[in-house]
Amino acid sequence: MLVAAPFHGVERIEARFHGNAFSPHRHDTYALGLTLHGVQTFRYRGTKRFSSPGNVIVLHPDELHDGAAGTEDGLIYRMIYLPPNLISAADGYRHALPFVTDPVVADVRLWQALAEILADLSEEPSDLIMDDVVMRLASDLSRQAGAPPMAIAKSARTAVLRARDFIEDHCSDIVRSEVLEIASGLDRYELSRQFRRLLGTSPHRYLIMRRLELAKLSIVGGKGLAQSAADAGFADQAHFTRHFRKTFGMTPGRWLTMASTSSG
């Protein structure tokens, strides 16, 4: 697996494998990809899906899926993991995130935008390139979603962004519902509802993902799994490993091996 250096919370990969590669897992990002060789198969929203070269994969945040090569020829694909926050920001946080029902689409404009950002994983895109691609992806996802976007009230938008900022600033601490209620000005149930509409996941899940990001950076920096887990706010290494596998479909050790091989 080839893993590009992350930037602005965005991750990009190229995966090559035969057979089953990823156990069921879910991200808090959009997972947008291009099938380059072979047949890409995965289970998503209760149905087995197939993608061949020329198709675009669109997986919504927080949706469970796995991954495998559909034939003995193996599989090559490239994927970008795009934080929902960027898609919402392109719209000024005025509407709920677009949901594309079919995770395998044939869309020339969407393909072109993804091909541009995934063409060279060894080079970090400039801010100007990234801003343009995010704008195009946001537009294309809305077009593919079809249904008119749900408007988000300004007060709800402000509340969600306050809660998001609080979580990011305190992600290695214990964050309780009553604290987020004070930070956002919304009761916990309305906050959860509006948070998911705008950012594609729950406040708890968003907190776990920020902790996982901290732990990944710590592991790559040379710290052990137990220390990285503790520093990021996990109860222990086993707690960290369970969440890591649920999110990335593999253990931290396997991920580190692939990341090290890619960077080496």
Rank of each mutant, 00 (worst) to 15 (best):
L2E: 05
L2N: 04
A4W: 04
P6Y: 01
F7W: 09
F7R: 11
H8K: 12
H8P: 00
V10P: 10
E11Y: 07
R12P: 03
E14G: 00
A15I: 11
A15S: 12
A21M: 14
S23K: 13
S23N: 09
T29W: 14
L32K: 07
G33L: 05
G33E: 06
L36Y: 05
T41N: 02
T41M: 02
G46K: 06
G46V: 03
G54E: 03
V56K: 03
I57T: 07
L59W: 13
D62T: 00
E63T: 05
H65G: 07
G67A: 06
A69Y: 01
T71K: 00
L75I: 00
P83G: 04
I87A: 09
A90E: 08
D91L: 11
G92P: 08
A96L: 06
A96Q: 13
P98R: 10
P98M: 11
P98L: 11
V100N: 04
D102G: 01
D102N: 08
D107K: 06
V108F: 05
R109C: 05
L110I: 04
W111P: 02
A115D: 09
A115Q: 04
A115H: 04
E116S: 09
I117C: 04
D120A: 05
E123D: 01
E124K: 08
P125D: 06
V134P: 09
V134Y: 06
M135A: 07
L137V: 13
A138S: 14
A138P: 03
A138K: 08
D140K: 08
S142M: 10
P148V: 11
A156S: 15
T158Y: 03
R164C: 08
S172F: 09
V175Y: 02
E178H: 14
A183S: 06
S184N: 09
L186R: 08
Y189K: 02
Y189W: 01
R196Y: 07
R197I: 08
R205A: 07
R205G: 03
L207K: 12
M209P: 04
L212A: 14
I219M: 10
G222I: 02
G222F: 04
G224F: 10
A226V: 09
Q227I: 15
Q227V: 15
A230L: 15
A235R: 14
Q237R: 01
Q237M: 02
H239A: 11
F240A: 12
H243R: 14
F244S: 00
F248I: 06
G253K: 12
G253L: 12
G253P: 09
R254P: 04
R254F: 10
M258T: 11
A259D: 02
S262T: 08
G264C: 05
